[in-house]
Design a protein around this nucleic acid. Structure first.
Lengths: 147, 147
DNA sequence: CTTTCTGCAAATGTTTTGCATTCAA
DNA sequence: TTGAATGCAAAACATTTGCAGAAAG
């Protein structure tokens, strides 16, 4: 039986065809690595995850592919304020924001209709057409505040 | 008559004394440069602004001083997702978030009590103690959408 | 005097790029 | 067969660091 990840792979392949981009082994492997995990990872981590599996895809290709996946909307690129990006795939995930523990790095995803509404109001008030937003809460999670 | 910026300078000097940090010409010049402008600038821009005035303070010192100002709460460090920081001083400014035009780079500051409230609710719900947040809206401003 | 700070240049860490080679179409 | 993608190493970019000399306390 076909799972979600397979459907995404199909979509990815269709996109490549549509855009006259080549379906290479490397692109597929990076894609699958990204969709296999629900973590919020950096390109570097994805690169090493592949390396560990003896899939020696060059760093440049990993970065180039992540860029492509971001450009075509297969992943979200999040900036958690360390001067680098983390990616998360969009499989089965609705839009959400993040709650990040500054001690252990744990990331909680949250959705708040209220915040979404207020954002629209603010944008409207200033005459902006809203394209995207960045909303992260930093704090200490329950586990970390106990110890 | 004494203005706000002077008061801040006094506070900065007091802090240095309290922390047994040295009051150097460079630190004062960087500090004044930062408090002289209301822009949201990067360390690099501050470095060049000083250079233009023939104040040849080394890049390292500018970076080190911005770090200090951030550490002691004289400036906010914001990450607008380009892999680098921008700073804004806290002179006369309450807490606020940002609305950024992706075309011209213009930055609008906004405050929303509602968002602040909802953030607290979300943190509580997940058992987090909220420390800070990052909230940026990206869109197209009225000027840019006309053209 | 004795720390601490500065300036420099080198190092760092992440990401990008040029170019020869390889490969999908 | 040929234009695009890969891999490599070098470059780029913002930022940090080690260290010797300078300056503040």
């Amino acid at each position: 039986m076909e799972n979600m990840s397979n459907i995404m792979t199909k979509q990815f392949k269709e996109l490549l065809k549509k855009e006259h981009l080549k379906l290479t082994t490397q692109r597929l492997l990076v894609f699958e690595e990204v969709f296999k995990s629900d973590e919020h990872r950096e390109s570097e981590e994805i690169y090493f995850a592949l390396k560990k599996k003896n899939l020696n895809i060059s760093r440049a290709t990993v970065y180039r592919t992540m860029d492509l996946l971001h450009k075509y909307g297969f992943v979200n690129r999040m900036d958690i304020g360390e001067g680098k990006w983390r990616y998360e795939h969009k499989l089965e995930s609705q839009h959400h924001d993040h709650l990040i523990c500054v001690k252990c790095g744990r990331i909680e995803e949250f959705i708040s209709r209220k915040v979404e509404q207020v954002q629209e109001e603010v944008a409207k008030q200033y005459g902006y057409t809203l394209l995207k937003h960045n909303h992260q809460l930093f704090g200490i999670c329950s586990d970390c505040s106990e110890s």
